[in-house]
Design a protein around this nucleic acid. Structure first.
Length: 262
DNA sequence: ACATTGACCTGAGAGC
DNA sequence: TGCTCTCAGGTCAATG
């Protein structure tokens, strides 16, 4: 579930709690979540260093270490961060603990173990190596750039929005909101979208994600005119009050209003 | 080259 | 009570 707005919240959380504190040690509770890095190298790299700044690209959180590489975290669908001023008892399903010298600690928790932790020399090379598209809120992603990235695609528009190589940061939840606001059916093939519809999708994408970041990724704080509070609540379209529908799009469940998204 | 499907992973909830 | 089945969803390998 952690999509762009959620990772933006984790970034703010880390910024507010964990910067500029020397790390005494890092504890790897589950090495299966480490990618391209051994537990030994991760521990060695982090020891004595501190988190200096953070950045985000799509669903990835990057943490700059003083005089070292970047720590990279991905949260799968159940990951989050938990900070405590004391070192006692980390939450259940903690996979990595960053133990600070002053006694505080930051826990990387991931119940379903679909998240990943790794190191990267810099953000750009990491993004390039994974062939990731621009962050969905990148200013450079104007309508023309968005259209170019979708050009030649024939699959469902929902799948394209969720494709991190096209645009990074959107998942199953927020793609539902974007397509509702754009009034486009999730199964609609990208190459069947008219110019106006494509423009609507682009506009909705920016508007929805900005708003969601403002709301700290908390769906219950979104306006009642938004789709997601109803998808999780009364199951009725906020625009026309029709019962919401579910359809499968490339193996994923899409939620929509059959009347507003023909 | 692109699109879709299945596997991975764990816990909750449904149905019997 | 307890068993089995299905589902959630991000990503990637395998398949079409």
């Amino acid at each position: 579930m952690p999509e762009l707005p959620d990772v933006a919240r984790f970034k703010s959380y880390l910024d507010a709690t964990s910067l500029h504190q020397p790390i005494g040690r890092a504890v790897v509770h589950d090495r299966d979540l480490l990618e391209d890095v051994s537990a030994e190298r991760l521990r060695r790299t982090l020891r004595g260093r501190s988190f200096e700044s953070t950045d985000r690209w799509g669903k990835f959180l990057f943490v700059e270490l003083d005089a070292g590489p970047w720590l990279v975290m991905h949260f799968g669908m159940t990951g989050y961060l938990d900070y405590s001023e004391t070192s006692r008892e980390v939450p259940h399903h903690t996979r990595v603990t960053y133990q600070f010298e002053g006694g505080a600690r930051l826990a990387y928790v991931c119940q379903r173990r679909l998240g990943r932790v790794t190191l990267a020399d810099d953000l750009q090379s990491f993004v390039r190596s994974r062939d990731m598209g621009p962050d969905a809120l990148d200013e450079q992603l104007d309508f023309e750039a968005f259209r170019r990235r979708l050009a030649g695609r024939g699959g469902a528009v929902k799948s394209a929005l969720m494709n991190q190589q096209i645009v990074a940061g959107i998942g199953n939840v927020y793609s539902d909101e974007i397509l509702f606001q754009a009034r486009v059916h999730p199964k609609r093939p990208v190459n069947a979208l008219g110019d106006g519809q494509l423009r609507s999708v682009h506009r909705a994408l920016r508007k929805v994600l900005r708003k969601a970041v403002d709301c700290n990724g908390e769906i219950e704080r979104l306006p009642r005119s938004y789709f997601l509070p109803h998808r999780e609540g009364d199951g009725l379209c906020p625009r026309c009050r029709r019962e919401l529908e579910q359809v499968k799009v490339s193996g994923r469940t899409a939620h929509l209003c059959p009347r507003c998204q023909p």
